[in-house]
Design a protein around this nucleic acid. Sequence first.
DNA 1: TGAATCGATGCCAAATTTTGTCACCAAATG
DNA 2: CATTTGGTGACAAAATTTGGCATCGATTCA
Lengths: 213, 213
Amino acid sequence: MNIRLRHEAIVRILRRSGTSTVNDLAREVGASGRTVLRDIVALRDQGFVIHSESGRGGGLLLDPQSVQTTARLSMTEVFALIISVAAMRAARSLPFSDLADAGLAKIERALSADKVRDLRRLLDCLYVGQLSPEQDISDLGLIDQALLPAFETTFLQRLHLRFRYRDAKGAETIRTVEPQALLILPPLWYLVAWDAARDDFRQLAVEMILSAP
Amino acid sequence: MNIRLRHEAIVRILRRSGTSTVNDLAREVGASGRTVLRDIVALRDQGFVIHSESGRGGGLLLDPQSVQTTARLSMTEVFALIISVAAMRAARSLPFSDLADAGLAKIERALSADKVRDLRRLLDCLYVGQLSPEQDISDLGLIDQALLPAFETTFLQRLHLRFRYRDAKGAETIRTVEPQALLILPPLWYLVAWDAARDDFRQLAVEMILSAP
DNA sequence: TGAATCGATGCCAAATTTTGTCACCAAATG
DNA sequence: CATTTGGTGACAAAATTTGGCATCGATTCA
């Protein structure tokens, strides 16, 4: 019996049976009570709210609120959260950080299943450069918040973005691009995008994006 | 590094990077190539379609279709599937069966995230009694298919169901109940429901449900 | 053709994680 | 007070995971 499946099973049983005791769960799931208790700890870590009562008639009770959560955050807030998580992950020199992903899992649990897909897709569009150990997440050099919603939309719906841009030589041009990724190399942000007019990928410094044309 | 997290990480990397090689993945994920290959096998088991090409410039490619799947089954078909799965689970004398749940996971992967929630809720409303080892799932005594959609709706939306019913004494009554669960004890099906008029839970034999009043 | 690259599989011992058991505590219940 | 029930720590056994290694097949490129 797989741990992952057992965890899912426990949640399922708790959700349907109201309260049930550790030993009931153990029997139903085919594991020892000790193991079930360990599972409960793990589930609580994952964000499930599981109440417990000692004594006769006691047992475990899964808080329904913690399961059927709905999105209370706007996608813009989520986008900001994602950036934090990506930054946390980048901050460690590890190729992949357990902690950062545990945090992400918690964020995900607070959102509806639909939003999670969007969130994942956004995260996949986001690259955050290395932060030195002394640097804080707040040192990311967060750009104009007003731009975030536009980025969200274009990333998620694969739309084109059109704006005035001042290039490296200082010349002002109007660009129509399909954003591919957001590259955050503190304190500078770059938009990696496909420029159809130039038939090539470009890295556009976000602070050089002036406004809608 | 947790297996679960690593699997998620691999999917994420594959989704954003287009194709990438086993060794790239291994480096990025902090594991050996052998382990990544094992992970790929596991992910394919879970339903992800991962193409691969040998030789220079080759690598692994995650089929986007296998991720952003949409529901192709009606909920009624799904309901029937759920019953099979629940029956399979009940058929084994084990308290909980790996195989049955692996099957369920595949069904889930074929559905949209929204449908999965419904599916889980339906599954939680469903109890299937023990089948002897010789009995097949087809021995479940599937009831009139026409009733399934009505059950679905009422279970999912917590609606009331109103029908004519012939009770144990042969008397015909009209019931208005809120279905709580479907109890399948082959070959008989029972609807466990809250009868507001009688202020109590009742078990109603499904075959005694005659029609809409 | 031959060398190099890259996925895939089998095998095995080492490393790691999971699991069960036991002992014990705290709270609640009758 | 005895019993039930959750919760924790420790430790050894059991199970799983992991990393090499060898090997195969397919592909690419010189």
